[in-house]
Write a protein that binds this DNA or RNA. Structure first.
Lengths: 214, 214, 214, 214
DNA sequence: CATGAATGAGCGTTCATTCAT
DNA sequence: TATGAATGAACGCTCATTCAT
């Protein structure tokens, strides 16, 4: 009856991993409401009651699972932010590659994130998305400010708009990297590093010139 | 078993509109699978059997409703494509505004589109997304080619990448226009026309320079 | 609201025939309860209300349709009963052939009859089956009595048992003629006339000897 | 989606029996499609979900229930086939009695079998009927061959026709034993043993003479 | 602590029948 | 007279959740 998250923590590491992995796949494939606790326990071969003992209910399971993942969404950013001796555009390029790497390494988590983006009924959506977006915005703002200070970006750049645009373009870059194109679409115009460099160059030009050059 | 779309066509205009509006709201709020035919008919105050007479089944209802919408997605593009005497960037700017106008006029349809984007289980997803994306890609390609011919874009521009980037940025522009920002986020940095001009200018710079200028 | 069978009688002959034929096929394929009035009117291309005006309700339609058919079930018997100059076994043989001819000419009606046989929920089952069986029993009894009088059957034959047995065997003969054998079964060991003669011969021997001959 | 027949096997014997009995009655009374899972669970006083956990779906319930019955259809035959020291006709007589006993002991299963006979839409019909008919045909063929070897049947008997005829007559014998005669029909001309002996004698004569004696 | 049988509201869907036009 | 839109009970089935063992 009590959620008792202690129970789950006491499980052997291997089993804990399997439980979370299987559940992640289910949520990634079906979203939250269409995900079926029945299917999860069936695939795991454990009793239904056990899962509810561990996490209280479906939402508890999701919260546990995705809460741990949120940290993962932030990690690649930190590593790059702490690099020194790189220009703004090199950092953007590395961010693109690092983000794609994360998407490749944790495709299921990214699929959940994408489903959560536009599904207002996803539980804890506000909290999780807020955390992720906040971290990314903060990261990008920091990068831009560093870039301005280093003279790599025009001093009169509108930081808010730049954050928005960078965020938008980069997010979309990851999306296209993760989601298989529809049938018949021209897929994979180039390999990842080339695509990243190409986009970084594009952004460089977009941001570099002073807006008053008109 | 008896789809009989005739039945629906024979209904008085006002009722037809109410049915489609209510159903659209339901799909917009809950996506496809979580949308409830029960809720729809309850809100409409009609019998469940009636809805199934009109559209055969849930998917038929969705197909009818969203199929009509797809045409709406394409219309604003056509109008701009047929303008003459405008530069490439003026056209992009108008596209952004027109797209936002559509999103504002049909917020529920756009919400459905967004939910469909990352939910692989959405029925008819491939068909509808393919149609929409195809139309947009074709439209953008045309714009870019016109721009090159008019000397407003560099002749050696990689058209494929340009289409991809334009599409990505514009799509995201509409998304941010449509989806209310999460609590506490800095919302609405600027009014629509300013945002559109600002982004168009950004894209102008990104595309204008020749990539070989390095 | 009123059944108003007059309405149907006033229809042009051709339309009346189509309505009954289509309905007969539906009942033959699905039995009574699984038969769908929707499907019938769809195939006919007439309004649902019309059918209910004609026959009041589903049962009225079935009653009309099968009531007319019952006469058909009796007709072949009468023709043979009125033959003279034929022996008992020749008459049996002709009955078998005539019955098979009827089954071939009206396969849908016979399928309905077979479905009715063991489905107690068929409406009007008692009345229709009673009529058909009664006519057949009366017919067979007459044949047997004629046969005894003509010295073609033993005088001490138990008429009741003979009627039962004849009825059973002949009915089954028609069933096997009508119902396609299951996959892989040895079908069609012989053509109809041979089968009929063979069975008549078998019955001849079964009935001919006096039971006391042991 | 989770058939899980384990669940049902784990139930206490008494409950398992009640569930199957109640379901059998429902199918016997209404056939497959008109049988109502709702009615079954209402009579049982259990939740609807439980039944679906046990058998996956309606067809699974029917398959379980009737699959077990099919074995029962074959058992009485085996016992007689393995008797020795009995003549062909004694074996036929015993078969008739044993078959009737089975029909009396399991009237609901036999009613299902009869409904299945002429209802082409019965699920699993081909499989179940094929199994039953196959076993019976094999059994009768064996009996006839034994009878020929023992000199109790003419050596030149057409085995195929004999199997068909025996099968037809015996099947019909059971049917008349099981199905209550229609109102007003002369019922029960004799008790079972007498009827069986009488029919066996009839068959003896039908088969005994050589067909060439004409 | 794990189990898994039980629950019952909810789902999408079908149907014979009614009745205003 | 013919129409066909409207009805709503019933269908087979799924689900997250509970709790006695």
């Amino acid at each position: 009856m009590t959620p008792s998250p202690k129970t789950f923590e006491n499980l052997p590491e291997e089993k804990r991993r399997r439980v979370l992995d299987e559940a992640t796949v289910e949520f990634a494939e079906h979203g939250y409401h269409q995900a079926s606790v029945n299917r999860i326990v069936d695939r795991l071969g454990i009793a239904k009651g056990s899962l509810f003992k561990y996490f209280g209910n479906k939402q508890g399971l999701f919260e546990h699972l995705f809460g741990r993942a949120v940290a993962g969404f932030k990690k690649p950013l930190k590593e790059i932010r702490d690099t020194s001796g790189l220009t703004f555009f090199e950092r953007i390029e590395r961010s693109l590659v690092a983000g794609c790497r994360f998407v490749e390494d944790h495709p299921q988590l990214y699929r959940i994130y994408l489903k959560m983006l536009f599904n207002e009924n996803f539980p804890l959506r506000e909290r999780f998305l807020g955390e992720i977006r906040g971290a990314h915005a903060k990261y990008l703002r920091r990068l831009i400010e560093d870039g301005i200070q280093a003279g790599q970006l025009p001093a009169d750049l509108d930081t808010d708009t730049a954050v928005f645009t960078l965020h938008a373009v980069m997010d979309r870059f990851f999306q296209d990297h993760a989601v298989p194109p529809l049938d018949g679409e021209p897929s994979e115009p180039a390999a990842l590093p080339d695509k990243a460099r190409s986009l970084a160059e594009f952004l460089r030009r977009g941001l570099a010139a002073t807006p008053s050059q008109e």
